[in-house]
Each structure stands twice: as C-alpha cells, then as structure tokens.
Amino acid sequence: MPVMSERPKKLGPRVTVSVTPGDYDVLNKLAERDDVSVSWVIRRAIQEYLRRHRSSSVDMRKAPVKHPSAPQRA
C-alpha cells in the first residue's frame, strides 16, 4: 500500500481537469481504500497511461499527436 509521506516534496506544473461526479466518486473510494489522496490516484493513473503509450520509435517531445476523439480547443 502506498504511503503518503513517500511522495516527492516538490511536484511539477499543475493541471486542472474536470471529471464526472461518478468518476470522482470512484476516484475518492479508491483513494480512501488505499489511504492516499485523490491527486495521488490521478497522478498514478497518468503515469500508467504514459507508460503504456510510450514507444521507443516515437519521440513524444518532437511532434504532438492529435487524436480525432480528443476535444478540440476553440
């Protein structure tokens, strides 16, 4: 089980996202179950997502990938 005191003292840039009430409830229950913050759960989910989508043949820093399903900014 993760321990809150093991987190880095200084984190990088902040990101603000909105989630559905149902997703927030699930995130909150997961956080309570593991005795961590919702932010910790979200950071871990981002880390896992990025790990799954990294490719040694693509340098993610060079060219952003646009996904048709991603919402477009106005």
Rank of each mutant, 00 (worst) to 15 (best):
E6S: 13
I46L: 14
L30S: 05
A70F: 02
M4Q: 12
S56Q: 00
R44C: 05
G12F: 03
N28S: 12
V58N: 13
R54F: 09
V3P: 04
H53M: 15
L11Y: 06
S69P: 11
N28L: 14
G22W: 00
H67F: 07
V38K: 09
G12W: 03
Y24W: 11
P8A: 01
S18I: 13
E32P: 01
V17W: 04
E6K: 12
V17F: 03
R52L: 07
P13N: 02
S57N: 05
M60S: 08
M4K: 15
S57Y: 00
V38I: 14
N28Q: 14
M1E: 13
Q72S: 00
I46R: 03
R61S: 12
T16D: 06
V65G: 09
D23S: 14
L11K: 09
A70G: 01
V26A: 04
V41F: 08
E48V: 07
Y49A: 14
R43G: 11
K29N: 13
D25T: 08
V41D: 07
P8T: 01
Q72I: 00
W40M: 14
Q47M: 11
P13A: 00
V41R: 11
M60G: 00
R73C: 01
D59R: 11
A63N: 07
M60E: 11
P2S: 06
H53N: 15
P68Y: 03
L27A: 08
Q72T: 00
R52H: 03
S69L: 14
R61L: 02
M4Y: 06
S55Q: 11
L27V: 11
V38E: 04
P64T: 11
D23K: 13
V26W: 00
P68C: 02
V58H: 13
V3N: 10
D59V: 07
K9V: 13
R52I: 01
D25G: 07
R73S: 01
S37L: 07
Y24K: 10
L50I: 10
T20P: 12
L50Y: 11
Y24M: 10
P13Y: 00
Q47V: 11
K10C: 03
R61A: 10
D23Y: 05
Y49T: 15
K29M: 10
I46K: 04
V15H: 13
V3K: 01
E32Y: 01
A31M: 02
R54M: 09
K62Q: 15
V41E: 05
K62Y: 13
D34K: 12
H53T: 15
S39W: 08
L30M: 08
A31I: 02
R43A: 12
S56H: 00
P21E: 08
D35V: 01
R33Q: 06
Y49D: 12
A70D: 09
L30R: 13
S69C: 12
Q47I: 09
L30E: 06
T16N: 06
K9T: 14
R61H: 02
A70E: 09
M1L: 09
R7F: 01
K29I: 05
T20L: 14
E32A: 09
I42M: 09
E48Y: 06
R54D: 15
Q47H: 14
N28C: 12
Y24G: 04
